[in-house]
């Protein structure tokens, strides 16, 4: 079975280490915050200028001056700090964020990512995505392996305008966890009950299948 959104978030959360500063994008990445492993403390960065994002507020805590990068009302946890957008992107661009998790439309075997623009459709803007992919060393992309029409999103070359080039080395899809190295995807883990054949058939870019592909457990 393909992973649910919650299982994808759970799998990404296993990459968290104690003491990490983490930026979570909108969608599945946001759910990762619900699965921080026991005994691990991480600080969530929100690029509008908050390090130490907490839970959503109660009615009493609701404050128009406290939002996250998705413009949702939030709270600050104990030990949080708040700063300007320039300071926030200095952290991001300067490589100080330990892990960045974000979604994409396409990723290719050279580590390119396309996530912000579909020509012919209205273009809303890249927000902070280009800064995040250019600045982070450790990025996990979360997306479905193929589109609803069955088109692979793991390509030899991205077909859409790029968000960043040569910057992605880890991809978690609903079918598999893959790494990118030297012009290839490398299959590391498969979703429970999903066959290697299915993953191969839905991966358009060059794919290496090692002997020791792990089946994920939840």
């Amino acid at each position: 079975m393909a992973l649910t959104r919650e299982q994808m978030a759970q799998r990404v959360a296993r990459e968290l280490k104690d003491g990490y500063y983490v930026n979570l994008g909108i969608g599945i990445p946001t759910l990762v915050a619900n699965y921080v492993p026991e005994g691990i403390d991480v600080m969530l960065q929100s690029e509008n200028g908050l390090l130490g994002m907490g839970a959503f507020p109660t009615e009493d805590e609701l404050d128009a001056d406290m939002i996250n990068a998705g413009k949702q009302t939030v709270t600050a946890r104990k030990g949080a700090s708040i700063f300007s957008s320039a300071e926030s992107f200095a952290m991001i661009r300067g490589g100080h964020v330990d892990l960045t998790v974000l979604g994409a439309f396409e990723v290719d075997a050279n580590g390119n990512i396309a996530s912000w623009m579909i020509p012919g459709k209205l273009i809303k803007g890249m927000g902070g995505a280009m800064d995040l992919v250019a600045g982070a060393d450790n990025i996990i992309v979360t997306m479905t392996h193929a589109s609803k029409d069955g088109e692979s999103k793991l390509l030899k070359h991205c077909s859409l305008p790029l968000t960043g080039c040569g910057c992605i080395r880890k991809v978690l899809t609903d079918l598999a966890y893959l790494e990118i190295d030297n012009g290839h995807f490398i299959l590391r883990e498969r979703a429970p009950g999903v066959s290697i054949d299915e993953i191969v058939s839905k991966t358009a870019g060059p794919l290496i299948v090692p002997d020791d592909v792990i089946e994920m457990t939840f």
């Binding site: 690029e47 320039a86 992107f89 890249m126 927000g127 902070g128 800064d131 250019a134």
Partner: peptide, 23 residues
């Protein structure tokens, strides 16, 4: 890009005419 926009404004106010970024 959001970080580039922030830095363009910071640079503008700080007398720096342009900067290089990987973004």
């Amino acid at each position: 890009p959001q970080g580039t926009l922030a830095e363009k404004l910071r640079a503008g106010g700080a007398g720096i005419p342009a900067f290089f970024t990987a973004t």
